[in-house]
Design a binder for these strands. Sequence first.
DNA 1: TTGTATGCGTTATCAA
DNA 2: TTGATAACGCATACAA
Lengths: 327, 327
Amino acid sequence: MVANRAGASITTVSRVLNAVPVAVSAALRQRILAAAKELDYRPNALAVSLRKGGATKTIGLLIADISAPYFHVLTRGVEDAAQEAGYTVILCDTDRNPQKELKYLDVLYRKQVDAVIFAGGGVDDDRHLHGRNWGSIAVVTVGPHTLPVPRVEVDDRAAIAAAVAQLVEQGCRRIACISGQQNWLVSERRRDGYRQGLIAAGLPIDERLDWPSAFTLETGEACTKQALDAGLEFDGLVAFTDEGAIGAMRALKTAGLRIPEDVAVVGCDDTRIAPLTDPPLSSLSFPLHQMGVVAVEIVLAMKSGLAVENRRFPFELRVRTSSQRSK
Amino acid sequence: MVANRAGASITTVSRVLNAVPVAVSAALRQRILAAAKELDYRPNALAVSLRKGGATKTIGLLIADISAPYFHVLTRGVEDAAQEAGYTVILCDTDRNPQKELKYLDVLYRKQVDAVIFAGGGVDDDRHLHGRNWGSIAVVTVGPHTLPVPRVEVDDRAAIAAAVAQLVEQGCRRIACISGQQNWLVSERRRDGYRQGLIAAGLPIDERLDWPSAFTLETGEACTKQALDAGLEFDGLVAFTDEGAIGAMRALKTAGLRIPEDVAVVGCDDTRIAPLTDPPLSSLSFPLHQMGVVAVEIVLAMKSGLAVENRRFPFELRVRTSSQRSK
DNA sequence: TTGTATGCGTTATCAA
DNA sequence: TTGATAACGCATACAA
């Protein structure tokens, strides 16, 4: 239609609008530019992608739940890097439900996304995703996953182990653990870290101090209350999410226990809530924004045929009042 | 290629795969289905959309920042409803920067999105968006906007006014306000509410108690500290975000003031942090998830040619310790 | 019951 | 310097 209005062929219009290095008379060029402007013309990305052979400048981001704190900053990192590179992000909340993941993947395939980022750790060893033919889609995982693709990670085990070590250093000898869903890989890794930490400190492993939970405040509170009601004794506690730790602190306070004097507490992910709780919550901090950025960089590199390596980021234990006992 | 492998024409393949009500011999159908399965065939959504005349089953969601608490639940609501309807969401963080908004819109046009949702309130009266030809794109706004499109709203004015009223009821007579960026529409509306609240209570409006901020903890803390340092007196405070309120509480506590006895505080948006602060923060709650869902429902209705109406949701003032003085 | 031909909007090849 | 034409992958009107 631009061609029509400018009295030119679509070929010439395409040339002008795409600045193809072919001589076009100044007059025609002006007419075309004017027509395009008047019509507020924008090329149809569908047609372009179809013609050009597939690239859609689109990245699918699969996360558990955008309303869960872990993903906020990570997602922003992905989005920033994508936008910078002229890419667009399709947000996919999967609740770590394999069925939902597969359904979303199907849609992403159809929409011809250039890349897929799995973030936040897999479920059930990502069994449903193994052996899959990704075709030309670049895939990367962020967090604990088992897919044979490039990874962006932190050492979850070492992180939790470091938290345990800090509690031990504060004098804790019976350290409980609010872990997560058994079939979530991130729970497994972190539980490994918990045990390693205990072993490293020469402390016994007591199964009764390992409380499965669901990463939420409510479940964290519930399992802590249950343990207290059962008369279990413990003087330190590490939770795999900040929310779980906050729930635990609630239960502890309700029971009249002091934090950190009676029970010292450490959370995980260092979400924006951590420094605001009462008392301020110690937590493990990961460079989530940067991890999101790097995940995008990796898939872009893959698309360019460059060699890519796994990237491992350092964690940082932010010690706050909840696990800092005064002498 | 499925056609090839099955020894059929692409027409027949299309018919079988799309369950077109045309008789196809069982044998051929089986061959086609088998071939499709073996090849893990998925139709190219680009080609389909192009052929079918534009619909891409895609919604563009423009928000300020996915890492800001207001947007988490809203975004999840949008995503849930979109997924349910077979739509996909492109996430666009614009930081309320008009340039970024325009740039993203351009991309969304090109990608032929079916709908665009602007959420979180406009900036500068959305001047850069008025008079625009949306073509066949269904547009809806969530929160305070001035675009001539269907709206999903809460009464921001009445909400803040209700917060002021509650503070007055608690005996507050000099109520300060941590407002937001002057050119953000949501700030304006809420500031109106602040003033209305004061007027309704017969209290004077003191410009010195209106502190522009930037919705963040840091700026909330800074402007409160500044006011305290300047010797300003106030016994109540309403902030336009929870984070601003938390920053204020920090400054107040640092100055040795008690909450709510010396200064009662109310926040806004009732984010998940609110009940966890010390003391628990009173806040205005909006049904964000539902608002996201309804925003999607509206654009879908628009695409179906149905008549749509603006939707207004109720707010709820969640009174917690920060603004609840004991008798 | 099956297949051929056309066109969606664009770019690339070729011809004029 | 310009334009006609084919092809990207698919759905559909029409033919056989």
